[in-house]
Simulated assay, not measured.
Amino acid sequence: MLFLVVIVSASGTDIAADLSHGAGLTHLLQEITILLFALIILSLLIFDNFMKKSQIRQLKEELEAAKNMPVPESVAVLAARQQLSQAIDEQFTEWQLTASERDVGIMLLKGYSLKEIAALRGTADKTIRQQASAIYQKSGTPGRHAFSAWFIEDLL
């Protein structure tokens, strides 16, 4: 974006200088075209950045809302949730997942997409894909669905 801002300001300055020096119409049209093209691309980048920040904010709000969901009153449900959480943690330890892989693994089990996980963790999509692949390899599962099923198949 900084590069485009430099192009826009330089083009604007150059057009103003060309106008004061009586440059030809063809040259001015070329300069104006470059300026408009740079402005359009800059606008699209700013809009995309705004949309991504909005999406991250929404995902964080959803995550916070999920954390603040009312806890089930049933003792049996609470015990089952605690046992599942403990079983997941123990299995992650057995698979020797790193701290980052554990975080990604939990978010995968919660149903977040790789893109959403990247946004929530503030990392590149490629990094999350690599961590997910490492999780599947260490767990011996072929992919996301098998990874999730590994934990809940017997419960159902």
Score class of each variant (00 low, 15 high):
residue 40 I to W: 13
residue 126 K to W: 14
residue 67 K to M: 10
residue 148 S to H: 08
residue 79 A to G: 07
residue 91 Q to G: 12
residue 106 I to N: 14
residue 19 L to T: 11
residue 55 Q to F: 11
residue 123 T to W: 03
residue 106 I to V: 08
residue 112 Y to G: 01
residue 85 S to G: 12
residue 100 S to Q: 10
residue 111 G to T: 05
residue 16 A to Q: 01
residue 61 E to Q: 13
residue 23 A to C: 10
residue 47 F to C: 05
residue 128 I to T: 10
residue 151 F to K: 10
residue 131 Q to V: 05
residue 101 E to M: 01
residue 48 D to N: 12
residue 109 L to E: 08
residue 119 A to G: 14
residue 86 Q to I: 06
residue 32 I to H: 06
residue 79 A to W: 01
residue 46 I to M: 11
residue 134 A to Q: 11
residue 116 E to Q: 15
residue 17 A to M: 08
residue 5 V to H: 15
residue 141 T to I: 00
residue 2 L to W: 01
residue 72 P to N: 10
residue 72 P to C: 01
residue 92 F to A: 00
residue 145 H to N: 13
residue 31 E to R: 15
residue 21 H to M: 04
residue 22 G to F: 02
residue 1 M to P: 05
residue 133 S to T: 10
residue 62 E to W: 00
residue 12 G to M: 01
residue 117 I to S: 02
residue 140 G to I: 09
residue 143 G to W: 03
residue 33 T to E: 12
residue 33 T to R: 06
residue 64 E to C: 05
residue 101 E to I: 10
residue 133 S to N: 15
residue 91 Q to V: 00
residue 69 M to Y: 00
residue 61 E to V: 05
residue 64 E to A: 07
residue 123 T to N: 09
residue 9 S to R: 13
residue 37 F to I: 09
residue 99 A to M: 06
residue 14 D to T: 13
residue 146 A to Y: 06
residue 98 T to Q: 03
residue 109 L to I: 06
residue 3 F to M: 08
residue 156 L to D: 14
residue 10 A to Q: 07
residue 80 A to M: 05
residue 59 L to T: 11
residue 44 L to A: 14
residue 55 Q to L: 15
residue 114 L to Q: 07
residue 111 G to Y: 07
residue 120 L to R: 03
residue 137 Q to P: 03
residue 6 V to C: 07
residue 115 K to T: 00
residue 122 G to L: 05
residue 18 D to P: 00
residue 132 A to W: 11
residue 14 D to C: 09
residue 9 S to T: 10
residue 31 E to A: 08
residue 141 T to Y: 00
residue 66 A to G: 13
residue 127 T to H: 04
residue 10 A to D: 12
residue 60 K to F: 09
residue 61 E to H: 01
residue 101 E to D: 04
residue 57 R to T: 12
residue 34 I to K: 10
residue 144 R to D: 09
residue 54 S to E: 11
residue 133 S to W: 06
residue 107 M to S: 08
residue 31 E to Y: 05
residue 29 L to T: 07
residue 132 A to V: 11
residue 110 K to R: 11
residue 127 T to D: 00
residue 57 R to P: 09
residue 130 Q to W: 01
residue 125 D to I: 14
residue 64 E to D: 10
residue 89 D to W: 10
residue 72 P to L: 00
residue 91 Q to A: 12
residue 12 G to K: 06
residue 37 F to R: 03
residue 90 E to W: 12
residue 69 M to A: 06
residue 114 L to N: 15
residue 80 A to V: 08
residue 138 K to N: 02
residue 102 R to D: 12
residue 135 I to Q: 06
residue 20 S to R: 13
residue 50 F to S: 08
residue 53 K to H: 11
